Computed example of a mutant assay.
Amino acid sequence: MKAIWNGEVLAESNATLVVEGNHYFPPASLDRRFFSDSATTTMCPWKGTASYYDVEVNGKVNKDAAWLYPAPKSAAANIAGHVAFWKGVEVKL
């Protein structure tokens, strides 16, 4: 799987985990040049607290376009630290 935005591959892995229709990419699969921490957090009743990354490619910023669960609840322990995408980031084979 590849996560692509603004013409760049943000992450690529053949070992994503699919939860609720979202592909979660292993941390090592991210091209860290494009990610910066966001102060945004949200709460999922069964996964826990999500943290977000802003994605910046070629001078364009996609705020909170990636999220992860750094310390998920036990039901979602398998996706700890894995990153998923939205807000126009294309995830495809």
Rank of each mutant, 00 (worst) to 15 (best):
E20K: 09
G7A: 15
A71G: 06
A71R: 14
T42P: 01
K47T: 06
V89L: 07
A66D: 02
F85M: 03
V89I: 11
K47N: 04
A71H: 15
A65Q: 04
S29R: 05
S13D: 07
K73I: 05
S51T: 13
H23T: 04
K92D: 09
A77C: 02
K63I: 03
G59P: 02
G59Y: 11
A80I: 12
V91A: 11
K73Y: 06
G59W: 12
G59T: 09
S13C: 14
V91M: 13
V57S: 04
A77F: 01
M43F: 14
P26D: 05
G21S: 11
V9K: 14
A65M: 07
N78W: 00
K87Y: 08
R33F: 05
V61P: 06
T49G: 00
Y69P: 00
S13R: 12
S74P: 04
N58E: 12
K92R: 15
F34T: 01
G21I: 10
A11I: 15
A39S: 13
N22H: 09
P70W: 12
N78A: 07
A11Q: 13
N6K: 14
L30D: 02
Y53S: 00
F34H: 03
S51W: 06
N6V: 14
T42V: 08
L68D: 00
P27A: 11
V18F: 01
D37R: 14
V57K: 03
A28E: 15
K60N: 10
A50E: 02
I4L: 13
M1N: 11
T49I: 06
V18Y: 02
K47H: 04
P45A: 06
S38N: 09
A75M: 05
W86T: 09
G21V: 14
L68R: 12
